[in-house]
Measured scan of single mutants.
Amino acid sequence: MASQGTKRSYEQMETDGERQNATEIRASVGKMIDGIGRFYIQMCTELKLSDYEGRLIQNSLTIERMVLSAFDERRNKYLEEHPSAGKDPKKTGGPIYKRVDRKWMRELVLYDKEEIRRIWRQANNGDDATAGLTHMMIWHSNLNDTTYQRTRALVRTGMDPRMCSLMQGSTLPRRSGAAGAAVKGVGTMVMELIRMIKRGINDRNFWRGENGRKTRSAYERMCNILKGKFQTAAQRAMMDQVRESRNPGNAEIEDLIFLARSALILRGSVAHKSCLPACVYGPAVASGYDFEKEGYSLVGIDPFKLLQNSQVYSLIRPNENPAHKSQLVWMACNSAAFEDLRVLSFIRGTKVSPRGKLSTRGVQIASNENMDAMESSTLELRSRYWAIRTRSGGNTNQQRASAGQISVQPAFSVQRNLPFDKPTIMAAFTGNTEGRTSDMRAEIIRMMEGAKPEEMSFQGRGVFELSDERAANPIVPSFDMSNEGSYFFGDNAEEYDN
């Protein structure tokens, strides 16, 4: 993207840094990872977990959730003011799984939030270390993106479920800051804005008074975040219109849905970061690795190297396929839920299948599930090659597409044709070009129609051997075009429920 120079890199967003050079960025990201790792080690000690239990991804998720809940100030305040039966607002906890007599047992633990905050700050040299908290939120978000298709949420806001490739980060909490905003897809931002506008339509006082002023500035800020994701002048001009509207209503909703559809071809720039579970960072720190000293990046080879040398386990339900569970977590670790499966298959070195073909449910185990038949197995999170994460949407291309997802959002900077089903997408653009945004709409449609099938995206960008740390010898991959490109292809993934 041309304006790259004016933006802070995501590592800076990730670490609240002012302008830093590459070495400083690597050190501050490393410091953040160190903090998460030290916190995780301490929690495993508190909970008396064995090494194996500490490497269980379900335990990692519970521990991450506990610290996120302990620092969720708004919710904590709300819980104190609106006490609900049987919930102690000062405590947080969740299921911890232990191996007892050759069987997995679930144990519900409860801790004072104050105590968890103390352990977290102690692991982070006394700081609140917001960057580390956001990092864990993005890992949870990436896992949700890989596990669930947001059909219901899309339909509720009037969008087409086939636009799911635009929904990265749709389950990120509001408090995820600049680093969170960077990884949100165009569809996620559109959905947040539509929800806001709908509230304004239904509630006369939404934009009024002292609160209304705050609401208005939040609305304009979200519009600017979305505008910054678009790469064409016409899309940005249309966002200006939406932002400046005196009284946002149905016309703005129409414009936003139009823009979301246009992003299936004229893709937005959305950041991709490899955020790993805390149970990967903990053992690495415990083994003596100093992330701050060595430096770390979320968008280069580092996460690949770390996963190459990590042992992570997962509980497996009786009829689940461990290899499929591994694929789910591998995609989440690489922030690749909406990437082209052919690119992923090449990088991973084994075939990556669409969601609907995987015999696996989510990673988390519900409290009512029976533990008797639970097994555990090693997650295979290694890769054959590594590639640089991208934040450009890439230019655009036609490809055989599917009944489910009709476009992709690249996660890796790797040369390819970008699949999208042009006739299906263009069919949504018939007729409606009147109104105050008509010239911009016409211009956007013209650009979409001009998108050429034979153009290559990320020209000359390749993948790298894991021994090639400096990215000196790019390998331009070859793809098996007979395979499906979309992950949520004609899909039956479970729906995400809060």
Rank of each mutant, 00 (worst) to 15 (best):
T6C: 11
I197L: 15
S50L: 04
E254C: 12
T350R: 03
K7A: 11
R8V: 08
L315D: 01
G209Y: 11
S297W: 10
K98H: 01
W386A: 15
G158I: 09
R355K: 08
I41R: 01
H82S: 02
E494I: 05
I365S: 06
C275V: 07
S413D: 13
S359Y: 05
A2V: 05
I475K: 02
E114M: 04
G462I: 10
K422R: 14
R317V: 07
A411P: 08
T6L: 11
R156T: 02
V280L: 14
A401I: 01
D255Y: 08
L110M: 10
D491I: 01
R382P: 05
V352K: 13
Q12A: 13
E81F: 00
E469G: 13
N309M: 00
A129P: 01
M189V: 07
G282S: 05
M66E: 07
A218V: 07
D160H: 09
I33K: 13
K48W: 09
D101A: 00
R150C: 10
E369Q: 04
K48P: 03
L256R: 05
D290F: 10
G180V: 05
V329I: 00
A178H: 03
I425S: 06
F346V: 04
G249Q: 10
E24Y: 13
I25Y: 09
S467K: 00
M222Y: 15
D145E: 09
M456C: 15
V352P: 15
A263R: 13
M371P: 00
E339G: 12
A260R: 08
P83R: 00
K7D: 11
N202S: 07
G462W: 10
N144D: 09
S69E: 05
Q20Y: 09
K7I: 06
R75Q: 11
R267V: 08
E369F: 11
V343C: 12
S3D: 02
R117H: 02
R446S: 06
M43E: 09
T23C: 00
P474Q: 12
H135W: 10
V408E: 15
T6A: 14
V285Y: 04
M371Y: 07
N59I: 12
T424N: 02
R470W: 13
N76F: 03
T437V: 01
M426S: 14
G362Q: 11
E192A: 02
N483I: 15
I445M: 14
